[in-house]
Amino acid sequence: MAKLKVEVITGERVVYEADDVDMVIAPGAEGALGILPRHAPLISLLSMGEMRIRKGNDEQSLAVFGGFIEVANNVVRVLADTAERAEEIDLARAEEARQRAQARLQQRTAEIDRARAEAAFRRSLIRLQVARKRRARQGMGSGASGPIEGQG
């Protein structure tokens, strides 16, 4: 069966690259996009959210924040404004950011601040979701419940 080649790139670097992917689920601007091999050529805007990359039984998550996705000839190219792999996300920092944003949302502040706080809140939630999923999967694999030690 045909496989997908997947590239996630930002203005600064290549964040993710693989060429034996079975399925990609990306946060399209018009709703989630599921992409299987032999998908029709497509260019879509991305919103912010979790991007899932499935290889057999293995699934990896990335946090992507806006940009574009391009699909053609079994190549999925994501041109993200910002993108982070699960293992790059600092869980403690994301949690801190969430609390900060939440505190700011509870105060009565100017409209523009509110919009910024909301965006920050959403970003932190996505980061937490992506990072926690990875932790849960690793916990399952090793059977340990304590903090994960530097694996990958």
Binding site: G11, G28, A29, E30, A40, P41, L42, I43, S44, L45, G67, F68, E70, A72, L79, D81
Partner: peptide
């Protein structure tokens, strides 16, 4: 290369979003 693609939401919306990115990329 991308003439016969499907565009979501539309070619104009994609171009609209691309242009500011292009400015950033060039400056960067």
């Amino acid at each position: 290369e991308i003439a016969d693609y499907i565009f979501e939401p539309s070619p104009a919306a994609v171009l609209q979003a691309l242009l500011p990115r292009f400015i950033e990329v060039q400056l960067y």
